Simulated scan of single mutants.
Amino acid sequence: MFQDLLTVVIVALVASAIACRLIIWFGPVDHPNVPRKQHGQATRTSGGLGIGVGYAAAMLLLLNNSSVWQYEVSPHGERLLWMSAGFSYPLLFIGFVDDAVDLPASLKFALYSVISLAAALVIGPISTFPLGGDVVLVIPYLAAILGAALWIFTMINCVNFMDGANGLAMGSVGFGLVALGCISLANGAPSGAAISLCGAGATLGFLIWNFPRGRLFAGDSGALFGGALAASASLIVVIRTGASPFVPVIAFFPILADALITLVWRVARRRSLFTGHVEHHYQIAIRGGLSRETVAVAYWVATSACGVLAFAVAREPDFAAEWIALAGLVLLAIILSAYTHNWARERGLIDP
């Protein structure tokens, strides 16, 4: 089983890398024509197409040519694999169109909402939240569906918001997917492992061309597809392993925290959520003098640490560990955010 999985992960990486090389020759171009775009020259974009090609090649090979995995993945698990692709690829297409013609924010909001709700209905809700001991919070079906849709919508947007420095967002997604894959394997859920690790392999194939030189950008196609894979893998891992819903939040915490805290900060100052800006923490760090490569690696390290924490608490029999760990991360993020914004205001990097 592990040999088959390793093979298809390598296939995902190689297919993605080859497809991304073709995009560098023929793909659309991203021009630095607005302040939030911090690259200095026109660069090929829509590297998400390469990630999508790599992921598709790996999953088709796994499901059609591996007798071991056909046995290991139950029919329900195989349906989950196709369900995850069924809403990830429409987002890939929307992102590709947006890379080319810059779709209105209101239209994208509507499309993301509809696809997120449809995906939640198909994949299924998570209606129980273990809180420790024998305490379990049971959520009504409708609320659970809306919660799953909100998770998908949040994940795809957060990855998109954070895709502004070479390797940062997609590398963080890759590390988070590796953590989910390890959790799935440790808990006997091969379908979740297949989605997570094949997605991580395809992402690495893109990063070969993206980091550190930035010869190719992921574009909205990559950010939306990567966010969709992360969101679907999260739901499937929780459903198939019985892990706490807090576990995926921990695994992807650095990019979630940066995006969501920045949105809250902008709302508190009555600033539009539909206009581009340079107020994310990673953007402040770059404007403050750190290189894009240093900032990206810092987020990778933070995501890796959170992935290890997610794996550890997922293996802990007392579910209280998950929400205690998450609460600690939230407190740390708030403290770091307050310090960062005060530091940036003192140096005139952001408006008061």
Results as ranks from 00 to 15, higher is better:
V11Y: 01
I24L: 09
A118Q: 07
G242V: 08
L309Q: 07
P32G: 02
D318F: 10
I324V: 15
V101W: 12
G219R: 01
E316S: 14
S172L: 05
L111A: 11
L331C: 13
A149R: 09
L229C: 06
F153H: 13
G348Q: 08
F129S: 02
S191N: 13
C198L: 11
I286F: 04
S337F: 13
L326S: 07
F129L: 15
V178H: 02
A110F: 15
D163V: 01
L63W: 08
P125F: 04
H341C: 02
L60K: 02
P212T: 07
G199I: 00
R215W: 13
I123Y: 01
E78S: 14
G124Q: 08
G133S: 11
L168G: 01
V295I: 07
V178Q: 02
L326G: 04
S337I: 08
G222E: 00
G242E: 07
F274D: 14
A338H: 15
Y89V: 01
V68C: 08
W69T: 06
Y71L: 15
I126P: 03
L81M: 06
A100G: 08
G188Q: 07
V249E: 07
F175E: 01
S74V: 10
I145G: 07
I350D: 06
A243M: 13
M83V: 06
A312K: 14
R240K: 14
S291E: 09
I261D: 04
S16C: 00
L235G: 04
G171V: 02
A189Q: 05
F109K: 07
S196F: 08
F252S: 00
A194W: 00
V313L: 12
A119W: 03
D4F: 13
A333Q: 05
V122L: 11
R215S: 13
I284T: 07
P317F: 10
A259H: 01
V159G: 00
A327G: 15
G86M: 04
F96C: 00
L107P: 05
S291P: 09
L260G: 07
H39I: 04
F87V: 08
G27T: 02
S244L: 09
A120V: 00
F206N: 00
L229E: 01
H277T: 00
V53L: 01
Y339A: 14
S221G: 07
P245H: 14
F153I: 10
T203L: 03
L150A: 15
L235T: 11
L137K: 10
M155Y: 02
S172F: 03
F206E: 00
A56T: 15
A230P: 01
G276F: 01
Y89K: 00
F87K: 03
V114P: 03
F253V: 05
V238Y: 09
I334Q: 12
H341N: 11
Q70E: 07
M170N: 03
